[in-house]
């Protein structure tokens, strides 16, 4: 405050005190931020060193000069046990799983939620309960029988087998049901008076109205799909279907089997696996927080 023109202050200021409370708050927050930031940052700096250094000295604090080399090797050199899979292929599979899962889930659950909320159906309540019971049992609990089912259907090592069973839960349907319930009654009434049929109302009014909700749930579901580990581990044994998250252990193991483990390349791969979901969460933060806190899971 450069108010030097006034010779005498109009009101008597108390001398500006140091706000110890605020300093304490910031200290806690900075420590917390460091706790969250340091591991991934160290992964990045370490990924820039050569295999021998990492093997001998472990995590590195400084940037080395092998960053490009390690990333290039991780993305384009064939690795794995069969020497047929590279990072680019796994990256593509991760995108197929993440986007396929999110889009599939949104379409299917929006349709179901619309049917449940907007139609006078005798079995609507029954359908509601049949669908919402699935919230009770996560895939991890029924993993073995689900695997058997996929195997009987001949869907192992297919994208269908990878994606569709993950959609078999009601999280999305529940979320859209809540939202549709909050849409004013008059909207459907008005649409009906104007002569719009139920399909037209859904496509032309309700879907555009749900844009923000769709964006929010897309982010949550994309991250969820991208980060799947157990299910892809069981369903994909063929390395050409490996996603980054599923493949990382195999790749790490095959790297560490060699004399000097290629931890630099493995870390580069881990960083590639982190970037897309982290980017989408950070850039679309407000939608993400909305989706997370309103979908209740």
């Amino acid at each position: 405050m450069a108010e030097t023109t006034l010779e005498t202050p109009v009101e008597t200021h108390r001398p500006r005190r140091i706000k110890w409370g605020a300093i304490g708050d910031h200290t806690v927050l900075i420590l917390g931020a460091l706790l969250m930031m340091i591991p991934p940052l160290l992964a990045l700096t370490t990924a820039s060193h050569d295999a021998v250094t990492i093997h001998r000295e472990g995590l590195q604090l400084t940037l080395g000069d092998n960053l490009g080399k390690n990333f290039h090797a991780a993305m384009f050199e064939k690795g794995g046990f069969t020497q047929t899979v590279d990072g680019t292929l796994m990256l593509m599979n991760s995108f197929i799983l993440g986007i396929g899962f999110a889009v599939g889930k949104i379409i299917i659950s929006m349709m179901a939620a619309y049917a449940i909320v907007y139609f006078r159906l005798r079995f609507a309540t029954l359908a509601f309960w049949v669908i919402f019971t699935t919230l009770l049992l996560p895939l991890e609990v029924r993993i073995l029988p689900s695997y058997e089912a996929i195997q009987k259907l001949g869907l192992t090592n297919t994208y269908t087998g990878l994606i569709v069973p993950l959609i078999a839960s009601a999280t999305g349907t529940f979320f859209f049901r809540q939202f549709f319930m909050s849409v004013p009654e008059e909207l459907a009434e008005a649409a009906r008076i104007d002569g719009a049929g139920p399909w037209k109302f859904f496509v032309d009014i309700l879907v555009p109205l749900s844009r923000t909700m769709i964006a929010a749930i897309f982010i949550i579901m994309f991250v969820f799909g991208w980060n799947q580990y157990l299910w892809p581990t069981l369903i994909t044994t063929d390395e050409s279907f490996f996603t980054l998250v599923r493949g990382i252990k195999q790749i790490v193991l095959s790297y560490t089997d060699s004399q000097i483990p290629e931890h630099g390349q493995a870390l580069a791969l881990a960083i590639v696996a982190m970037i897309p979901p982290v980017a989408i969460v950070v850039f679309f933060q407000n939608w993400f927080v909305k989706g997370l806190t309103e979908s209740d899971k």
Binding site: I108, S109, M111, A112, Y114, A115, I116, V117, Y118, F119, R120, L121, A124, A127, V130, I131, T134, V164, P165, I167, A168, T173, M181, E185, E186, A188, E189, R192, G197, P198, W199, F201
Partner: peptide, 23 residues
């Protein structure tokens, strides 16, 4: 369920089918 619901039968059944089938 909304009070101002639609009365069609085939559409909601078709809309629910994919989810019910997968489940």
């Amino acid at each position: 369920m909304k009070r101002a619901g639609f009365d069609t039968i085939w559409l909601p059944v078709a809309l629910l089918m994919p989810q019910l089938l997968i489940i």
